[in-house]
Amino acid sequence: MISFLNFNYFCAHLNRKLFLLFVRYTTSGVNMGIYSLSYKNLRRNRFRNATTVLRIAFGVVIFLILVSSGIGINTFFGQNQAAAQNSLLNHSNGSNNSVNAVVTSINEYIDLNLGINITNSKFISFIGSILRNIINFLDLIASIIFLIGIFGITNAMTLNLFERKREICLLKSLGFTEHQIILSHLLESGLLGFFGAMIGITVGIFGIFLLSIVVKVIKISILIPWWLPLIAVLITTSLSILLAIYIVFHNVKQDGVEALRYE
């Protein structure tokens, strides 16, 4: 128990040191007090911040599932299918010619057994167009769900920052410059977004890995290409920072005394 507590203390101490080192490195030349404040807020309000992080993580999980399933915003990227195709081709240890040969022989086999040239019939193309429509519809639904995920991140960040309007005004009255206040809040929001993305990616990849076992996909890289977690982290962190810019700018321009007098 004691060693666990010591370990816990050691981790907390190390986290603080790493955080401050990171801040010192990224914001050299500006005062440390305010950045230490950001760390304290992240730590002391851990339940509220955890809620924000989990909401962001939820958005990231939705993002991962949609992109890796090949619908939703995948239409815009169009890279996942290419990656999947490449991976399948590589795995089959053959070339395009061998795949085409297999397809041709399957078509011949079907035509031979059903007695008609069914693979080129209007009926098949009709079925194909229905399937394409269904996929387009799913694509639309998935995109909407993805937007809801983005809205979740937006909402979480907005709530987190509007609650701190009073604090921003107090910092201003203590003599911190607008630049310092904005930078400290952007750093904090960026970190929340980053942590949310990391948790979302961990949960999402684990979920997709389980799915890959069920559907027996040969390679997990077909579902999660290398760029996907990277894009998820970048989008989430940038989104968190961008949203914070607007809200913090808005709050920094507020009347200091009035904001503190009335709640």
């Binding site: 404040l37 002391r44 604090e167 203590l174 503190l260």
Partner: peptide, 26 residues
């Protein structure tokens, strides 16, 4: 400038309000 005024506020002026003066997590 705003930055210069902030510096003076920090070093030469101390402010106390009626309430909500403190940061709850410090």
């Amino acid at each position: 400038s705003k930055i210069e005024r902030s510096k003076i506020r920090r070093t030469e002026i101390g402010i106390i309000y009626q309430r909500n003066n403190l940061f709850p997590y410090l």
